[in-house]
Simulated assay, not measured.
Amino acid sequence: MRILITYGSKLGGTREIAGQLASGLRAAGLDARALPPEEVDDVRAYDAVIVGGGLYAGRWHRRARRFVHRHVQALRERPVWFFSSGPLDDSASRGNVPPTTQVRALMEQVGARGHVTFGGRLEPDARGFIARAMAREHAGDWRDPEHVTRWAHSVALELRDAAFLEAPR
């Protein structure tokens, strides 16, 4: 089973989460690849898709949004999950952080099976006026590799269950 993980990432933290998800899915025996949206021509080459986006002021990264809009029909035809990254605290590791309204609307468009929010990362020397201002009080790395791995394994189990149910008997 071929799984695509694609992402919109501004500073690299979401890209790294996508890589961790791909590693977790491969460890579960699936063929998973993490690619930026601009390197994906056709999602029909994949059996399932995970789309992730960094959250910036409550909005999903535009590359993730554009990817969903560009491939909406093909995404409707396969299992899809979404992830967000961004809270600059430990809230995502402590409990479920629901998708933003914007992400929820995209999920509904493609019939996504689920969503998870992972903590974000902001370097103390972040560039840009807003990022620098935020870094003064919120610099740090709140990504939780164990949370990422657990979620990857839950997706792998769901895919295996779905494949079992669809297999001819």
Score class of each variant (00 low, 15 high):
A163G: 08
V80W: 05
S23Y: 00
K10N: 08
G128T: 01
I17C: 08
A139G: 07
R70C: 04
W151C: 06
R150P: 03
H147I: 02
A64F: 04
I5A: 05
A34L: 08
A45G: 08
R59E: 14
A22I: 12
D42T: 12
Q73P: 01
A74I: 06
R33N: 02
M134A: 12
P99Q: 10
R160P: 02
W60S: 05
Y7N: 10
A18M: 08
M107S: 09
D161C: 07
S91M: 05
L157N: 14
G111F: 06
G86W: 02
R44Y: 03
D161A: 14
P98R: 06
V49K: 04
F83E: 11
A57L: 10
E146G: 15
F164S: 15
E123K: 11
F82Q: 04
G52V: 03
G114S: 10
E108Q: 14
D161R: 14
E108G: 10
Y56H: 15
L30K: 03
S93L: 00
G120V: 04
G114M: 06
G54P: 03
A112I: 07
L21H: 03
A105V: 11
P98K: 07
L159R: 09
G8I: 02
D125N: 01
L4R: 10
P98L: 03
M1V: 09
E166W: 00
A133F: 01
E123F: 02
E39T: 05
M134N: 00
R150T: 15
H138V: 03
E16M: 08
A105T: 15
I17P: 12
D42R: 08
A34F: 10
R26S: 14
T117D: 13
D41M: 06
T101I: 12
G12M: 00
L106E: 15
G29V: 13
R76I: 09
T100Q: 11
A156D: 06
K10C: 02
R59G: 03
F118W: 00
A112F: 02
T101S: 14
A92Y: 03
T117R: 05
P79M: 04
E38H: 13
D41R: 13
A27R: 14
A131T: 02
W142R: 04
A48I: 08
